[in-house]
Design a protein around this nucleic acid. Structure first.
Lengths: 344, 344
DNA sequence: CTGAAAGCGCTTACAG
DNA sequence: CTGAAAGCGCTTACAG
């Protein structure tokens, strides 16, 4: 009989000759339990192969023990973007410490996205992390209406009230872009282009603005910008467009590695040597970037650390702590072989 | 008052002048409810902004409404492997139809892996999908001991009892590899090498065996195999090793795109032109593969469809249906420009 | 240090 | 077609 159905806390209590409360307390340590009693309880649990039901615990504590992450990008992009899996593994690291889990949702439409947040709020998760934040992102209001605790991951320090009062983990993408522009400018490049990410994204906008600003600092024209979609296809197209110009750039700053890699490949196919004839840089520090020829100068975004920090911040918020904006300062340029002096 | 705490089914019932059971039934449609009553209930729910608590429902139904996916690969690999995100988005597609979710766990150690499965079994998920299956995978016994329903995703038709009686979704990786070898052999290549995945994985073994068998069919020596780790670094190293041979291969069959791309890049850096001097092929059909120069001949594995099928099979198993082994036949070769006749 | 009871918010037989 | 009640398996005040 005990063989077939899963043991419950009641079975353990009975076997140990105590009450359910005592069993619960023996594990949670929220109240002292005598050593002897504890031994009996643990032994009984062991024999019955009992572990507390997450479902029952969730109802009793009003805590699900999971946080939600919804990604609204195309699976193709997800696949090639180095950020997500690093970020997720950072999240997992700290979730595991708390025996919590990550509910991942991949959505492709706005309606699906909204439905997912509603489900998360209905008890599928205790909170959520908002990625790929857009200008005046409607999710800020949505999670608040739903009463779903959330932290937002941003690429710039949020202005007051910008994220609707949600705790924000941010890293400033600007300095890295400035440094790359500086590397190129100091190498002697004057015609430098930027292949940006989709403009609604804050991180894409920040990188683009940082590019333009840095160009100005060096007295260069920073208006040569083409908008890509973070995909290999768009990186290739944008690069073709730039190389077809009457006066093509001698250096290109890409907003992510995927676009940089397909751009590099396109250049090669046209017989344009990198970095001798064209300097390039990526963003994300994907594993591949280090193993290309030339290895790609890119930006490590500390995605793993940011995942850890984002989860810690969310857990703190769940415990009622106010955290406001916390800076995750792990963004650094990784110089490799894809930038050199321009020809002639 | 109703403003602050979330409304419960009891509040809705009271407002609609019915019992909680009727509210529940009005939504689940498990029993007829008169139109008029239903209207009143829906109106009350609307006013109170009520949605059923997943936590309470989970306890009452003994269903969590989520399935577990644990990936035991390095985040770096995850990041570059095109398979996972496609597979996950396939899973999501059908999970969304059932208003279910995906609990994702990234683990790096065997102990962590086991702990995660225990938590899943303790009520964090209704079932799990086993990926990256190894020979005599210990997880088969583990999930059975834990009473956790599971389906396994495999790269060959499972022999009787091989997966411990677990339903298996399989696709045969062999034909695609055979076809690639055929393409290379018919182009005139005789020294063809294989950069394999880690041998404990069944899919890596199958691709390797398929390579050797296909080579034999063409009367060629299929022993030139180097084992990689599915990473860019390992693809680069394996390629260097092969190109350093006294008689280097004229064609290389890689076990995934990431290794092929870094191999391609290494070849370029040595001034070896692809495909003129070296033909190569990948596996996975990553987005990048189509946008390289030359575009990579690769294998589309139908990862999205396999995700869908795996989840459907798992859901069927949860409903008590026997399914045994189901074939997911979506693996096809995607011919592109990276294979040509050998020189001279 | 431990017990007895109520409660978390649903669903599902059991009656009518 | 609907009501009243029990139950899912925990946790947490409340007593002692």
């Amino acid at each position: 009989m005990t063989q077939h159905r899963k043991a419950t806390i009641g079975d353990v209590a009975e076997r140990a000759g105590v009450t359910k409360a005592t069993v619960s307390l023996a594990y949670s340590r929220k109240r002292p339990v005598s050593d002897e009693t504890r031994q009996r309880i643990f032994a009984a649990a062991e024999e019955l192969q009992w572990t507390a039901s997450h479902r029952a615990r969730a109802l009793a504590t009003s805590r699900t023990g999971a946080i939600g992450l919804v990604v609204a990008r195309d699976p193709e992009v997800l696949a090639t973007d180095a950020f997500f899996s690093k970020f997720i593994s950072g999240c997992e690291r700290v979730l595991a410490e708390h025996e919590m889990g990550l509910m991942l949702h991949a959505v492709t439409t706005r309606e699906a996205e909204q439905a997912v947040y509603e489900r998360l709020a209905a008890g599928r998760a205790d909170g959520a992390i908002l990625l790929d934040v857009r200008q005046e992102d409607p999710r800020f209001a949505l999670v608040q209406r739903l009463g779903l605790p959330a932290v937002v991951l941003s690429a710039e320090e949020p202005a007051d009230g910008e994220t609707g009062g949600l705790p924000t983990v941010y890293s400033d993408d600007s300095p890295a872009i400035s440094e790359i522009v500086r590397l190129m400018a100091e190498a002697g490049h004057t015609r430098i282009a930027h292949v940006a990410g989709p403009s609604p994204y804050i991180h894409a906008r920040i990188r683009r603005e940082a590019f333009t600003a840095a160009m100005a600092e060096h007295g260069l024209d920073g208006s040569l910008v083409v908008e890509g979609a973070f995909t290999a296809a768009s990186g290739r197209d944008a690069t073709a467009q730039l190389l077809d110009l009457a006066e093509p750039p001698t250096a290109i700053v890409y907003a992510n590695d995927t676009m940089a890699i397909s751009g590099l490949s396109l250049a090669h196919s046209r017989g344009i040597r990198v970095p001798e004839e064209l300097s390039i840089s990526g963003y994300d520090d994907s594993e591949l970037s280090a193993h290309l020829s030339p290895a790609l100068t890119t930006v490590s975004t500390g995605a793993v650390q940011r995942g850890e920090i984002a989860v810690r911040t969310l857990l703190a918020a769940l415990d009622g702590e106010e955290s406001g904006a916390v800076r995750a300062d792990h963004t650094i340029v990784v110089p490799r072989g894809s930038i050199a002096a321009p020809r002639g």
